[in-house]
């Protein structure tokens, strides 16, 4: 299978993408992740103002048969959530790199460097698929 990748984003092993926009990190799930889940039926978002640390489960994304945690790729404060996903979760399938879940004001922007770039993530996905 071939999946889409956003070259401007960085990626976590748990399949979130994180894109630095100004001074906030915008977070969503990758094309590969949405394909694995199949039709997304529900998204649960964190509270705005919550303090989160990298690797912490802060949101949930559900299909008919699975419920997966969405982790914060970086530490910081949740400054916005995409409430439109609550009513139209299907956009996660239709436009995974547009359907952001939440935005974090990072306490340590260098945490982004620990994530994979698009090429590394593509290789990682290929490995997962083979396994």
């Amino acid at each position: 299978m071939s999946y889409k990748y956003d070259e401007s984003a960085r990626y976590a092993k748990s399949h979130e993408w994180a894109r630095l926009e100004g001074d906030v990190v915008v977070v969503g799930i990758s094309d590969y992740a949405q394909d694995l889940l199949s039709d997304v039926v529900y998204v649960e978002l964190p509270e705005v103002g919550a303090t989160v640390s990298a690797g912490e489960a802060v949101a949930t994304v559900e299909s008919v048969k699975a419920a997966e945690d969405v982790m914060a790729p970086v530490s910081g404060e949740v400054v916005a959530v995409n409430e439109t996903l609550e009513d139209t979760p299907e956009v996660v399938n239709e436009d995974p790199y547009g359907a952001w879940f939440f935005k974090i004001k990072p306490s340590d922007p260098s945490e982004l460097d620990a994530l994979m770039d698009a090429a590394a993530y593509e290789a990682f996905v290929a490995e997962e698929e083979a396994g």
Binding site: S63, V64, K65, A66
Partner: peptide, 12 residues
Amino acid sequence: LSTREQHIRRAK
């Protein structure tokens, strides 16, 4: 809404 239930969410 089975994702609430044990056969999918297990420990959660």
